[in-house]
């Protein structure tokens, strides 16, 4: 138990912070109920996938600057393919877009491995390329989404054996998020590949000498990142019903949440749970600011300040760790 506490200390602290924020929210707005929580979960969805995408790569010792652009591209692709198409067609669109994210992510990794240009430059160049591609697919916000996809993340679903009061607090968006992340993350974490990802993030040389296929692992880590980003893009299309070619502030948010979630920017440490809780914390802060009737533009400034402060703090910790 003691061991568990020490290993998960950061995540538990973060969870306590989240609970404290929920209590604060309830104090500010006594009427805050399950419906509001549902919209919070819906708002968190694209951010959470962006963070998951970033987390995989950061654990592998890299960074992916093209996360937001990848989300924009997958989102517009999905939206333009589904515009005016039949409901069944979307059944084909979803796997197609996910495969596209996977392949483009693998391309990121492949370019890093083949050209030996540092990840930060490759993904920056890919950011330009993917943004351009998104603009080519859809010049202005538009497109559409299948009704069943939109319904997938709105409202709640009755779960047998649970009282309605509890069920109301489990919005579909949250369930979709948990399902998608668990289906990919848990098997990954237990597999050889997952171990390799942690290994190359921890020490590339040591991993190489112990026989870990470093190049292949790196490519797969970026491919998984692309897959998560594609989920994020789909989530964007699902929640707004359209696709927008200009990416939102997901890149900075993903890095901030990764840092806040206890994943060291050097790699090899941390898990997915911390960053996901961190996303909820960051979003809930925004909700609170909105509930306090603060101008949305000012909210954006405060949010930016918090994210920058978090990233600065994380960098400071990393630096300290390196000096010792």
């Amino acid at each position: 138990m003691n061991h568990f506490l020490r290993r998960q200390g950061w995540v538990i602290g973060l969870f306590a912070l989240l609970v404290a924020l929920f209590i604060l929210t309830k104090l500010i707005q006594p009427g805050y109920g399950s419906g509001d929580f549902g919209s919070l979960a819906r708002a968190v969805l694209p951010y959470a996938f962006a963070v998951a995408a970033q987390t995989v790569v950061v654990i592998a010792g890299g960074i992916d600057l093209s996360v937001a652009a990848m989300m924009a591209l997958t989102s517009v692709t999905a939206a333009s393919m589904m515009a005016g198409a039949s409901e069944e067609y979307a059944l084909f669109v979803v796997p197609f877009v996910l495969a596209m994210g996977f392949v483009l992510g693998a391309l990121n990794g492949l370019l890093i491995v083949v050209t030996r240009v540092p990840d930060i430059v490759v993904t920056l160049a890919m950011l330009f390329v993917l943004q351009g591609a998104a603009l080519l697919v859809l010049g202005a916000p538009g497109g559409g989404a299948a009704e069943w996809l939109k319904a997938l993340i709105s409202g709640t679903v009755p779960i047998p054996g649970l009282p309605d009061a509890v069920d109301a607090w489990l919005p579909k968006a949250l369930l979709v998020l948990i399902f998608c992340l668990c289906v990919i993350w848990i098997p990954l974490r237990r597999s050889r590949l997952g171990l390799s990802i942690y290994a190359i993030g921890s020490s590339e040389l040591a991993a190489f000498r112990s026989g870990v296929p470093v190049k292949r692992t790196r490519i797969l880590a970026y491919a998984l990142s692309g897959l998560f980003a594609a989920f994020g893009g789909l989530a964007l299309t699902m929640s707004t019903g359209i696709g927008a070619p200009i990416p939102g502030p997901y890149l900075l948010a993903s890095v901030a949440a990764v840092v806040l979630g206890g994943v060291a920017l050097g790699g090899g440490k941390g898990g997915l749970l911390g960053p996901i809780i961190a996303v909820f914390v960051l979003r809930l802060v925004r909700t609170d600011l909105t509930l306090l009737a603060i101008d949305p533009n000012v909210t954006a400034i405060i949010e930016g300040l918090i994210m920058v402060a978090v990233v600065m703090f994380g960098a400071f910790i990393t630096m300290r760790g390196r000096q010792q």
Partner: peptide, 17 residues
């Protein structure tokens, strides 16, 4: 179009680096 221009700029940065 603007999109193709961005793609080109991205590829230029990658290739030259």
């Amino acid at each position: 179009p603007e999109g193709a221009r961005r793609i080109l700029f991205g590829l230029i940065v990658l290739f030259v680096t």
